[in-house]
């Protein structure tokens, strides 16, 4: 908080509230999970996954404030990533659909896709603002909105996916990922923990890619009017002191 204040990022309140929220949420989650694991009911598990997805969607959609249907777009994109990834893990029998496997894995999947969704929405807007002149030049030449934002979409996808790819590159050398560390701490054979982690990392990369592509392809349309002009009211970046940058 001191560092962000010193740098004038205006994120102190955000960091403080997030830290307090994380503290209480984790305690609450511990008790809820204890109850759900004990119940071992598939419908209850699905219900929990739906709630987790909705919360992830609500949180990530804040980055796209003002965009039409942003909550629906973000939630649907995160859900799509979750369904595909969890589906593959179930089909290839890496996990079974029991709460103590499906819920923690979904937590990892949703956490990653939520971050990717936030980054994608943020970059999409930034890139739309930066490339406004290019987009209008292309529209004026007869391009469709989809054609006009080709470079914007490339930039958005790259920015949202690069952190996951970079993490893959240094995995096991710079950092021991959470799941693997947890299994090792719980007394699991490290080679067995590694096998789980490899599958999970590939799945998380898939999740991030699916979520980001879905968000980019759905959300860019919100920046255009129905007659294919740019919505300039959305192409404004608010800075800390409320100055607007066109």
């Amino acid at each position: 908080m001191l560092i962000t204040s010193w740098q004038g990022l205006g994120m102190e309140k955000d960091i403080f509230i997030s830290a307090i929220r994380a503290f209480f949420q984790l305690f609450f989650t511990g008790y809820v999970l204890q109850f759900i694991f004990g119940a071992n009911n598939p419908y209850l598990t699905i219900g929990i996954l739906v709630i987790m997805t909705l919360i992830a969607g609500k949180d990530a959609s804040k980055r796209g404030q003002g965009l039409p249907k942003v909550f629906f777009i973000v939630t649907a994109s995160i859900a799509l990533g979750e369904i595909i990834t969890l589906g593959i893990l179930l089909i290839i029998k890496v996990i079974t659909f029991v709460p103590n496997e499906a819920i923690p894995l979904s937590g990892m999947i949703l956490g990653n896709s939520m971050v990717a969704a936030s980054v994608a929405l943020d970059r999409l807007k930034g890139s739309m603002v930066q490339r406004k002149a290019e987009i209008e030049a292309l529209l004026a030449l007869g391009a469709s909105p989809r054609q006009a934002v080709t470079n914007v979409l490339k930039e958005t996808l790259r920015t949202a996916i690069i952190p996951t790819v970079d993490r893959l590159k240094t995995m096991g050398i710079v950092s021991l990922p959470g799941m693997m560390s947890g299994l090792i701490l719980a007394g699991q054979d490290p080679t067995q923990a590694v096998k789980y982690q490899i599958v999970v990392m590939f799945m998380l990369t898939l999740t991030v890619t699916v979520t980001t592509v879905a968000i980019a392809l759905l959300a860019y349309q919100g920046y255009f009017t129905k007659y294919q002009g740019l919505r300039e009211d959305l192409l404004v970046i608010n800075t800390k002191k409320g100055h607007k940058v066109d």
Partner: peptide
């Protein structure tokens, strides 16, 4: 698209 093709623009 047809309109913008027929009515070009220089910025």
């Amino acid at each position: 698209q047809q309109l913008r093709t027929e009515v070009g623009m220089l910025f």
